[in-house]
Design a protein around this nucleic acid. Structure first.
Lengths: 328, 328
DNA sequence: TTGTAAGCGTTATCAA
DNA sequence: TTGATAACGCTTACAA
């Protein structure tokens, strides 16, 4: 492995001059600059980034925490973030928490030990009390998560609105008996439920506890939900799922039990994943403009890193939209 | 930010002793060990990893290169790898090349500049001639890619067999006019084509050039393919797609043109992604045991990092299997 | 415009 | 069993 010293002696110059060339400093004569560049090329020299970081305390890396990378919403989000980051020469470290509090905490050490310049949390497992102490080691922002207690910048959708318009749509279609699925007790799920409850309450309906489900994430979870509903004496006529994957699972299982969708059971998804437009019936869903969220969040993070004084908690809301298809 | 110096003076000991405690060296008295640990805890000290790396030339990070993270095959693969890596205290850096040669090359700098301990290539854009020079900076292995010229360890599936059994299945169903889609000219695609050609040739069929398509990746690409086939005077009765996403696109577009699948057009996918079992008709596909590939590849990489002398090119083949559903 | 040299935080060698 | 100190490779005052 060649070092800056090797380049310097090969070019017959000092390390300082080589360093200046590497970092594009002014006040280097064209002639020496060329000599250095040639020496670097001949040796195939690449600066040791650990040494650079030790000096600069900058890593040009951003950690993105997601709970389930296999969820297309998250992989699309990470894709968008990575694209934006690359333009500014930053790399993304994918941190897959698997909905695990402890694992999330481990990832915070990345910030503490200066392995990343900032953290974007596209999922949040721990409470703000636990997370807050880490903010002094570097910027942390929330993306698509909302915790009223958290004093951080967040880029998000109005999930209350999302829960509301989705439920309102089912009510408008004449449904009175509506089941409700959600993931864990994240802010996203909690706010969607607030929206859901707001809509049904406005319609003068009392939500049925037996139709409210938690910790529902996957296609298989969706299938399970249908089997549970099917076993009840009194079944709902519609389901708000909070996820296209869950919706897909419910729909397939329902069809296998010879139920018609939406006639026997209306199902509404969330996210507008590719799958939503492919099923038969196509799934009515709520579009989150995933790419926009990712790019916006990364923009904010890069801005904060570039100019830490802008790191005042902001609340950036992006639009949300119902996409009516055939499953409702 | 606290350093080892702060811990040392707080504990009234030398930096060397603190370092020994951090690294679990022998010959530290229990008493001083406790003193150091207490000092570290009180300060909330975390070692600066850049400094550690500069000394050790170890990063505990592995770069995983994929061409499209939004492809569920890759996100599942990365998920499996990350899971295995985490068990050994390693982190995965997700490198999304977007099928871009230049971008892939940039990621190789990670190895050269000592930012990762190794690279797993789940996609390969450059030729072996271009990649080979980087192998002297650290271990590089191929995962699910096969280039006969490449002198690297590879964990892979027999893609020739995959192409063969998929095509054989269509032939067994009585199809004589079979179209063929593939991605770019990667080894995966190339080998599948070899298998495809082997099967049709054995059946005494001459492949029709107008039915052979390249650079087909997405659902939308699949839709486009159907429109192209539809416009031909002589249309095939079956399509080998090389991807469940592409298969899904073809099927949906065909249905929108009132073609029946599989009666008017049989379609076979690849990967056994969740989507394959959800469409109507469910997609016949070829299972790649994604999780197994990911874990195996990561196992191999960790072993090489742990003991570089084992880095002799091996060829590890994992099983492949046809999953017959309704689209053929 | 260039060079010298100190220092970033850690670990390993050597001496005590 | 502990401590002093020299690296690791790089950047940046400061001096020339």
């Amino acid at each position: 492995m060649y070092t800056i010293k090797d380049v310097a002696s090969k070019a017959g110059l000092s390390q300082a001059t080589v360093s200046r060339v590497i970092n594009n400093h002014p006040y280097v004569s064209e002639e020496k600059k060329r000599a250095v560049q040639q020496a670097m090329a001949e040796l195939g020299y690449v600066p040791n980034s650990s040494a650079q970081r030790l000096r600069n305390l900058k890593t040009k890396k951003i950690a993105v925490l997601v709970s389930r990378i296999v969820n297309p919403f998250f992989s699309q989000l990470v894709d968008a973030m990575e694209k934006r980051a690359a333009i500014s020469g930053f790399q993304v470290i994918l941190c897959n928490t698997r909905i695990d509090r402890e694992k999330e905490l481990e990832y915070f050490q990345l910030l503490k030990s200066k392995q990343v310049d900032g953290i974007i949390m596209a999922s949040v497992e721990n409470t703000w009390e636990v997370i807050e102490p880490f903010t002094k080691y570097g910027p942390i922002i929330y993306c698509n998560e909302y915790d009223p207690a958290a004093r951080v910048t967040r880029v998000r959708l109005d999930q209350i609105e999302g829960g509301y318009i989705g439920t309102k749509h089912l009510l408008d279609k004449g449904h009175q008996k509506i089941a409700y699925c959600q993931g864990n007790d994240s802010s996203v799920s909690t706010n969607r439920r607030i929206g859901f409850l707001k809509a049904v309450t406005e319609a003068g309906i009392t939500p049925e506890p037996a139709w409210m489900f938690k910790n529902i994430f996957t296609i298989e979870d969706g299938r399970e939900i249908f089997r549970k509903l099917h076993a009840l004496s009194c079944t709902p006529t519609a389901v708000f799922t909070g996820s296209d994957e869950v919706a897909a699972g419910i729909i397939k299982e329902a069809q296998q039990h010879s139920w018609r969708v939406p006639e026997d059971l209306a199902v509404i998804g969330f996210d507008d994943q590719p799958i939503a437009a492919l099923l038969d019936p196509q799934i009515t869903t709520i579009n989150q403009f995933t790419t926009d969220i990712g790019i916006t969040a990364m923009n904010v993070m890069l801005e904060i890193i570039h100019n830490p004084s802008v790191n005042k908690p902001q609340d950036i809301l992006l639009p949300i939209r119902l996409i009516e298809r055939q499953s409702t």
